[in-house]
Nucleic acid binder design. Sequence first.
DNA 1: TATAAATGACTGACCAGTCAGTTATAAGGA
DNA 2: TCCTTATAACTGACTGGTCAGTCATTTATA
Lengths: 198, 198
Amino acid sequence: MSPKPDVSEERIEQITEAATKVFAEQGFDKARMDDIASEANLSKGTLYLYFKSKDAIITHLLDRLFEREFADLRTLATTDRPASEKVILFTDAIIADLQNWTRLIPIMYEFLGRLFRQSVVQQAFKKYMRYYLDMITPIIQEGIDAGEFHATDANAVSIALGALFEGTILLWVYDKESVDLQKHIRAGVELLMKGLQA
Amino acid sequence: MSPKPDVSEERIEQITEAATKVFAEQGFDKARMDDIASEANLSKGTLYLYFKSKDAIITHLLDRLFEREFADLRTLATTDRPASEKVILFTDAIIADLQNWTRLIPIMYEFLGRLFRQSVVQQAFKKYMRYYLDMITPIIQEGIDAGEFHATDANAVSIALGALFEGTILLWVYDKESVDLQKHIRAGVELLMKGLQA
DNA sequence: TATAAATGACTGACCAGTCAGTTATAAGGA
DNA sequence: TCCTTATAACTGACTGGTCAGTCATTTATA
């Protein structure tokens, strides 16, 4: 039928990759459409064949940001292990995935600046947060019910754990010389678990 | 001598206040100098009498951001109390100061986006981090030496504590309905302390 | 050869920064 | 008390540069 094959999926991927790189380097506002185009080896006009605006590209990045997140983490929750072990496995999975994440951190924080004024961004982060809580809180509760952890508010514990993950990354961004991501996330979680088991 | 009194200090304060508000609402890039001017009840030209550029205003905000920080927290470190109590006092002081901080959080995160590409911002955040570590690590070490806390890496504990503070704020920004800043910071620190004393 | 895909020069909106002109007032004099 | 004057403080129309988004034209290939 069509005299040419549909390349739109490939182009969208190509543009997304280029945009991720350019936005990470320059920030959303300073980055020019021409920068993204040349990074993608396309012309500016072509970008507009696949995205209706610069903002549409940014929104697309937001959609993809948390997409892969927790992909196989879900399976962890269902394995038949003590809760404390699950938390450790969970932590290890997050640490193992950090390498993939670090390149997205500038983009994450770029979005944080917009979180206060764009409800789309707000919704995305809230969804991410709820997703995390829904996954981890049952594990903590399970540990409490089994007498493995002393009785406490499982939700508060989940928040403390999440704060440790996100906070350690943040401190690492503040000062990469003082913080060893892997080591300090692990140390923090261990300390928290010890408090939970005390 | 001079036929007019020097109002520059007052004007700088006025402009700084207006800029803080406008930048928090619009972000550094979208905010226009005219917006800041009208918020400050001045004309755009006047802004340039006191700051040589938009970026100079932003840099000034960065300088002031951490300025008042830890002002009276230092005195806490020198009081003659058990280390665990000092940590609690420290936490309470931070919580008490949160109200003043929340309005600056959008600005903080605006800077985070620039942290990856502007060394001035990098330096400021690193300095803030070091300042924090220098204050809290000796307290933890003191607790370890006194046998109050079990032997561990005092530096790692400080980082875990800092991650809890910063991370809880971050999660609160993600989802204000799920996180109660005061309650969850306190709960996290208590859990961590329990682990430290176990 | 029909048409999907790609191009890049162009346009209109936007805005940081400038500067020639205006306003307000402290100080000195009548 | 009321001018006068020197000058600090302020103003806002204007300029030059930037860039998102458009579209008439060109290129590639089924």
